[in-house]
Each structure stands twice: as C-alpha cells, then as structure tokens.
Amino acid sequence: MNFGPLIFLGVFFTMACSWFGMIVVPQLQIGGQQPVKLEATGQMYPLPRAGLAQQGAAVYRANGCAACHSQQVRQGPPVFDVKLNDLGTNAAQVADIARKINHAAGAPLPGKNIWRTPVKKDADAAAKRLTDAGAKAAVVIVPTGADIERGWGARVSVAQDYLYDQPLMLGSRRIGPDLANIGARKPGADWQLWHLYNPRLITDGSFMPAYRFLFNEVPRRKDAPPALGALDKTLVAKTFPEPAGETVTDIVPTAEAVALVAYLASLNPDAPLFEAPAPVPPPPAAPATNTPAAVKP
C-alpha cells in the first residue's frame, strides 16, 4: 500500500489550513491596526514609547523578565454602577426613588453609587427614573475580575494596547505579579530602582531575584558629597542601615537600570476603547512616556 502522494497532499493541506486560519486571517484582520483617537481626551492611542523607554524594553527582553511577569489583564463580564451626580431641585423625591432602586442604600449623596447590577438595561432604567425626577444620574461601566480587583489594570487587555511593542513580551506565567499597568501602580522611579537593586529592601521576603549588576556600588568617605545620581537612601533607611565606619556606599543606577525603569513607567494601558469599555481614567499628572522626573541619568 503506497499512499505516498496522498499523505504528502494531506499533510500539505492540513498545515496550509492551520497556517491560513491562524496566521493569514488574523494578520488580515488585526495586522494593519492603527492608533485610534480617544473620544474622552482626543489623544491618539497608543502613543509610541519615548526613546529611553524603548531602550528599557531591550533591557527587559535581554534579561528575560517575561519569564516571570505577564503583561496582560484578564476580565470577567462587566457590571454597571448607577451613579448619582447631583440631587437636583427635588431632593426628597430623588431620595425616595433611590431607596426604591436599592433598599440597602442610605441617604443618597451627590457623587455616590446608588446601585450595582450586571444588566445594563436595568441600570439605564434606574438612571432614567432618577433623571426624570430632576437629578443628574449616570451609568458607569465597571470591569470585574480578580486581576482588576488586584489593581493590575482598568480593563481587559486588547490588541490595541500592544501596537508599539516590539518584541511583544506578554509572558505566560505569573511567578511575579502582572506588569501590564506597573507604570500607574507603583509610587515612582526611586521605588523601582531600589526594588531592582534588592527587592527585599522594599518587600520583606520578596521572591524576586536582585538585579545588582544594573547598579554601581561607589564607596565614599562619609563627609564627601554623594556620587552623582546616587539613590536616595531615605526610602530604605530601615532595611539598609549605614555601616558604622568611615566610608559609606552609594548605589548608582546604570543607564540600563534607568532605561528599564522608564520602560516600566510607560506601561499603563487604561484608555477606554470600543472593544474594551472602561470608565474614563483621571488625567495623568505627567505624560506617562516621559522619563521619571526623579531620575537623573
């Protein structure tokens, strides 16, 4: 029995199917994605990373950070909050309606959530009842899920978020926490740098390896001025006591460390999109792609 040609054709055909369905069709669908204009702010999303953050991505890649850290937020079905923005002129009637909508709710206050429901239609109807009574009410979409409750992101991650990631390092395991929005989650560049230098100075019992090769340890006499760009020790004063002798050691981040932290600061996909509705985030204090102000390379 010689089915050589048949096997050859079949093998070719099955692979061609998978190749077409899993590579060609997705490429046609989302391969040509472009930045979109956000309705809320009028800005384009996503914005390309600044040069320093782009260099930091290369440090992230070279050291294989993605082996332990994922960069994707999972989400469950959203719920809807009926939010009372203003009581209006007829406060008594509004309060009455609010109590009818949610028996457990106390006295309605402006800016308070009256009710949470998984059904958009119900939330809309409730908001309409309040609006008809003269109050100002709005329905706010709230994405759910453990990742979002942990504060790892505002909404589900979608293709649009990764348009400028090259290479794309989504990660497949969470040996460490997800980093999708680390830029918004942690206090600042100093925190990140200390954490990279030795995570156990910041978090007791952290399992993250130290990345001390990203820092120079510069000894100096105690009365000499600190080295240029040395990290501020007040943040870790408790866990990093100064030695008693004449010399102290300054911890100076290398250019790689500064770039890596700039990259981490640039991670914050929170813009509401059509495919991933979310509440409009508060405007950032400074553009996220910029170098953290505290760092002087």
Binding site: G76, P77, E275
Partner: peptide
C-alpha cells in the same frame, strides 16, 4: 469579529 474580545 476583530473587535470582540473574551469577556464580551
């Protein structure tokens, strides 16, 4: 649809 992601 290319706009529909998992929870939806």
């Amino acid at each position: 649809d290319p706009k529909v992601y998992t929870p939806y």
